[in-house]
């Protein structure tokens, strides 16, 4: 049975005066298996973040959206979000930030400390546990974000362009790191990006979204072997997928 089921989901935003509504996503259908890595690509404004927020339980939706068979009615400990770096608490150290989700779950102190240390080590920030976010590079801050989400022990990891603010090289390194961690933890992962290569490199399946109205256009299976390597990006199979996806996205821009 799929872990996440999205059936005919539409999401609208009300204007401040609550008189008009804007349909950001219409009629989305998608089923995601446990342990799967799904990426979502599409032009900006097509509703990627909106769909992810609905899965996170942060915005209301119409339709059916279930996780392990239960309807999503709000945030829950079964999901955790990796945000962009502006969502780290600037007054807490790396360790303090990673603890946050566990504190919200009212876990015992000792458990929180050990778990936080474990995930700080996993993302390679041991030496920086006492640093504040302001003292870290963008890539390091995203490691903190990933560690914070993982420490909360979710079944589903939701990521909204987590590497969007990083330079190309750091981005590539972080992608590899993310896969290493995901392979160790085997969480279900949903990853939003507007970078086609990143989408292919990470995914078991790529969800392609289009706009006007925001919707899911297609879902493409990526049959590249796991243990992805940077070199793979030069192989014909990868380049082929890239061409296909680019054509898809170009349709929307025309």
């Amino acid at each position: 049975m799929p872990q996440i089921q999205i059936e005919d989901v539409s999401i609208s935003y009300g204007s401040p005066d609550a008189k008009t509504t804007f349909k950001a996503v219409v009629g989305a259908n998608l089923a995601i298996e446990p342990g799967e890595f799904v990426t979502i690509v599409g032009p900006s404004g097509c509703g990627k973040s909106t769909l992810l927020s609905a899965i996170a339980g942060l915005v209301p939706y119409d339709g059916r959206l279930t996780i392990n068979g239960a309807a999503v009615t709000g945030p829950g400990p079964d999901r955790a979000i990796v945000f962009q770096d502006a969502s780290l608490l600037p007054w807490r150290t790396v360790h303090g930030n990673v603890r946050f989700g566990l504190e919200m779950q009212r876990k015992p102190r000792k458990f929180i400390r050990e778990r936080a240390e474990h995930f700080i080590e996993m993302v390679g920030l041991n030496a920086f546990a006492r640093y504040y976010p302001g003292q870290l590079s963008g890539g390091m801050r995203q490691r903190v974000n990933i560690a914070r989400a993982l420490a909360a022990d979710p079944q589903v990891l939701l990521m909204d362009e987590p590497f969007g603010a990083l330079d190309a090289q750091t981005r590539e390194i972080m992608g590899g790191e993310l896969l290493r961690i995901w392979e160790a933890e085997r969480k279900t992962a949903i990853f939003v990006t507007h970078d086609i290569e990143e989408a292919i490199f990470l995914a078991d399946r790529v969800v392609v979204m289009g706009r006007n109205p925001g919707r899911i256009k297609d879902v493409i299976r990526i049959d590249l072997p796991r243990r992805r390597t940077v070199e793979m990006q030069e192989e014909p199979a990868f380049l082929d997928l890239k061409r296909r996806l680019r054509a898809y996205l170009a349709e929307d821009l025309a």
């Binding site: 942060l58 915005v59 119409d62 959206l65």
Partner: peptide, 9 residues
Amino acid sequence: MRAPVRARS
């Protein structure tokens, strides 16, 4: 069905 999710603000 309108999911009863709390407003974010």
